[in-house]
Design a protein around this nucleic acid. Structure first.
Length: 159
DNA sequence: GCCAACGTTGGC
DNA sequence: GCCAACGTTGGC
């Protein structure tokens, strides 16, 4: 099966691409996702080796900071079982886990952030989920063309 | 099963 | 801090 391409959002104040780079093995479980559509992407469609655009939301400016890759199949999200976790969900049990996580591995930090404003201004990215108004999903599926385009934009100083 | 109220996301 | 978008909850 062909590689899939993803865009994953994170608030850099909470967890940035640089934080990922500094993790042991440069790998971190992507847990705490509590949206069914995003969960289904992880559970049904993600596989090791898939390419990830790492997007910084609630940042100045918001934009794509670099690249990561999927480093595991989906597995039960442990934070759902932990009453002390912000992500605790009593409806998720070890017998029947409701939520899953995947591991994500650092690949590359761009030389610059590719800001959302540039993504919006680029006609080739008109149907990129993140430039469409009201898209709040923390994990979006993107095309290989989107991915390559953004990678190229990162290598130029403007647009 | 409908739908209003509410909470969250996230750009600006 | 504001507000639009939209998912979830809960009363009925």
């Amino acid at each position: 099966m062909a590689k899939n391409y993803w865009l994953m959002k994170s608030e850099p104040d909470v967890f940035s691409l640089e934080d990922l780079r500094q993790r042991p093995n440069q790998t971190e479980p992507w847990d705490g996702v509590r949206n069914y559509q995003a969960r289904n992407f992880m559970r049904d469609d993600m596989k090791p080796g898939d390419c990830v655009l790492f997007y910084h939301s609630n940042a100045k400016p918001p934009g794509v900071a670099g690249l990561a890759e999927i480093a595991s199949e989906a597995f039960p999200d442990e934070t759902a079982f932990d009453p002390d976790s912000d992500y605790y969900d009593p409806k998720s049990t070890r017998e029947e886990p409701r939520w899953v996580a995947v591991k994500v591995r650092f690949v590359e930090a761009f030389g610059r952030i590719v800001p959302l404003a540039e993504l919006k201004a680029e006609p080739a990215l008109a149907d990129l989920p993140i430039v469409r108004k009201g898209n709040r999903l923390s994990i979006c599926s993107v095309t290989k063309a989107h991915y390559e385009k953004i990678r190229k934009m990162a290598k130029h100083s403007e647009g």
